[in-house]
């Protein structure tokens, strides 16, 4: 039996800056995962991934990442994706100190 689908968001890195971004319901890319479209249906998620991947002029390498709903919107469930929302732990660099696109 196939594994049950767990909720997802679509994420990638911006072409010019390399910054981590998330795909919104309006087909835009946000630097804040809370603004991402929360995907609970597998077929819809696959379709949205195709649509996201069509935007190759803007970003690089979109993929589905596990997420759950927090107070303000989607939040990551895995620590790797969590780091991508903040930046490195050895310096206050990246998203943790910069306002996003």
């Amino acid at each position: 039996m196939a594994r049950a689908f767990t909720p997802k968001v679509i994420t990638s890195n911006l072409l010019l800056s390399g910054d981590a971004v998330w795909f919104t319901a309006n087909d835009t890319w946000s630097g804040d995962i809370a603004e991402a479209e929360f995907l609970t249906d597998e077929a819809h998620a696959e379709l949205r991934l195709l649509e996201a991947n069509a935007q190759t002029g803007v970003m690089v390498g979109a993929y589905l990442a596990d997420a759950k709903l927090g107070d303000a919107g989607p939040v990551p469930t895995h620590f790797r994706e969590d780091f991508r929302t903040r930046g490195p732990s050895n310096y206050a660099h990246g998203k943790q100190v910069e306002t996003n696109v």
Partner: peptide
């Protein structure tokens, strides 16, 4: 690549050859 005449699939091997990798944040 920026003006869209190269796809990422075409560009990636070229940037890797020039030492440019895409990491988690940049």
């Amino acid at each position: 690549r920026i003006d869209g005449s190269l796809t990422e699939d075409e560009f990636k091997p070229l940037r890797l050859m020039n030492g440019l990798y895409l990491q988690l944040h940049a």
